[in-house]
Structures are given as structure tokens and as C-alpha cells.
Design a protein around this nucleic acid. Structure first.
Lengths: 150, 150
DNA sequence: ATTGACCCTCACACTTATGGAAGGGTTTGA
DNA sequence: TCAAACCCTTCCATAAGTGTGAGGGTCAAT
């Protein structure tokens, strides 16, 4: 498939697909006319990259991590230099920290939301579990920080 | 305390402390001479901000989330507009996704590392659990991508 | 009274992940 | 054959988080 289709199937802009390639995250074949030609596997690969970026890893690290995430893994074992392994170990630690922190703060926010919902009772306006519509940002965007100070 | 001490105690550059203030994440008193004057609570607050940034949240969101993370929480309940609550709910969802993804990928990397370690046997060079020294980046920084392509 | 260690603001610069437009090919379909 | 819809590269732009330096105060100790 060409870049447009991959873009649609992964929800990633063409621009970014080219960027990922430029960063060495993916290596893409070219048709004789110079067009990029992707096969099915790139759909997953791109989604994986997107996810890792979402998770806060920089492309530089993703580039190193990706080859270790392939399915028939044992084959690649020998490709890692001790230095890459060290990088991976450090990154694993960082991910663990990240996870701990994320969980902790998610719990805090969750608890807060629970309280708000309970405090307001069932007359709360948007407490409709099951509707996940992202309400268009209203006008009062900046009027929230009434007591956001320490 | 002044900015230098807070900087040392939180491992955050002075520049960043000023930046957090500029972004409205913290509100800081000034001494008569114009110096910023922080009290103890800022240590935790700054660490929290750092953590949330680490976790990938932008300051704009952190600004909203922070007041909900205070200890005597119930007091602040009424400060949240329905719109802020919606933001929080969405952010909570995103955090959950992030966590899932992070856990999944950490497990993959973990599994990979295990395999590498087992595959290489006990003669592996740097498999010294307990030493967490970050080895100074060696020269072969870019020579890793031997087979990082799809 | 001067030095050195702080602090201040302002401002420019860099990186990363993105968006976007310019200028120019290719393919496809009417 | 002409237009629409793709594709290409190159370059410029932006936001966020940071670093760094200039130019200039404050203050404590010598």
C-alpha cells in the first residue's frame, strides 16, 4: 500500500510516517517511481510506534526498543550489543517508574472524581457512564484556575 | 527557602522552577528584594510536577490536575467546573491507556532481556544485578541499528 | 569597599514531535 | 488531453520543555 492508505489505516499523518522513516524507526521500500510502498506489517508497526510515543518514549529510544519487540524474538537475541542491553535495562527501569507514577496519580484523580460525583449526587450534569463523547471545549477555557495556586 | 535550595532539593534547574511558575503550575511569594521565597510544601509540589511531566502530561493539563491532588481533598470539590471534570475524566482515560501500553511494552522488553540473559549464560558481561551504574555512553552510539528495520 | 555567591528578567537557541506550504512529478479517470 | 488526486522533497513554522548567557541587582564576609 502507499502512504495515503497507511495514513488512514493507522490514523497517522503522512508527514509523520515520513518522519518516522527519517528517524530510522521504519525502513520503507520504494516503487520504481519513488513512491513509498508499505506492506501489511507496517500497520502494526506504526501503531506500536505511536503507542510508544504516546507513552512518552523519544524516537531515539523507540528505535532501540522496537527490534526487541518482534514476535519471533529469539532470532534477534544476538543483535544486541551489551551497550544496547544496558540502555534497555535503564529504559525498563524508567518505564517502571513511569508506570508507578502514572498509577499513583491516576488513582488520585480517580478518587477525586469519585468524590466529586458522590458529593454532587445524581443530579450531576455529565455523569453519564457509557457516553465517551469529548464535549467541544467551551468558552470558559481559562477561567478554571481560580484556586490552582499552591 | 530560595530558588537555589529548592533547585538542589528537587533536582530541578532554577530555569525550570521559574518556568513552572510562568506556566501557572506554582504561585510563589516574593521577598521584599524580589527573590522568590518557597516554603517546604514546594518540595513535594515540584516533585509531583516533575513526575507528571515525566509521565507525559503537558503543563496545561497538570495545571488542572494539581489542585485535585491535594491531601485535604474534599474542600476543593466545589472548585471544579463540569468542564474541568470532563477534562479530568478524559485525562484519566488517557492515563489508563498509557499505563496499559507501558505495561505491555515493559513486559515485552523484560521478556527480551530475560531471554538475552539466559541465552548468553552466566558469562554475560554486565549482568550484575544490584549495580545500577549508568555506563558512560560509549563511542559506538550509532552502530546499533544493524537490523533495526522492519 | 570589594569580592563572590546568590538572585532577577529578558531573550535567544535547541530539540522533538508535528503541521503546512511550495514546487514539481505520476497515475487515473473522464 | 486535461484535471484530480496522489506522491515526492525541501524548507519553514510552532509548541513545549530546557539550556544558557547577558546585563544587572542584593547581600554576607573579608
Amino acid at each position: 500500500m502507499r502512504i495515503g492508505e497507511l495514513s488512514e489505516r493507522t490514523g497517522t499523518s503522512r508527514r509523520l510516517l515520513r518522519y518516522y522513516e527519517e528517524q530510522g524507526l521504519i525502513v520503507v521500500e520504494r516503487s520504481p517511481n519513488g513512491y513509498r510502498e508499505y506492506d501489511e506489517r507496517y500497520v502494526d508497526r506504526v501503531l506500536q510506534i505511536k503507542g510508544l510515543l504516546e507513552a512518552g518514549l523519544p524516537t531515539r529510544i523507540i528505535k532501540r526498543i522496537l527490534p526487541c519487540l518482534d514476535q519471533p524474538r529469539a532470532i534477534y537475541v544476538s543483535h544486541a550489543t551489551p551497550e544496547t542491553i544496558a540502555v534497555l535495562e535503564r529504559e525498563c527501569d524508567r518505564m517502571n517508574e513511569r508506570i508507578r507514577f502514572l498509577v499513583h496519580n491516576r488513582d488520585s484523580i480517580s478518587a477525586y472524581l469519585d468524590e466529586v460525583r458522590r458529593g454532587r449526587g445524581p443530579d450531576a450534569p455529565e455523569t453519564d457512564p457509557g457516553s465517551d463523547t469529548t464535549p467541544a471545549a467551551t468558552s470558559s477555557e481559562e477561567s478554571v484556575g481560580s484556586r490552582a495556586d499552591l
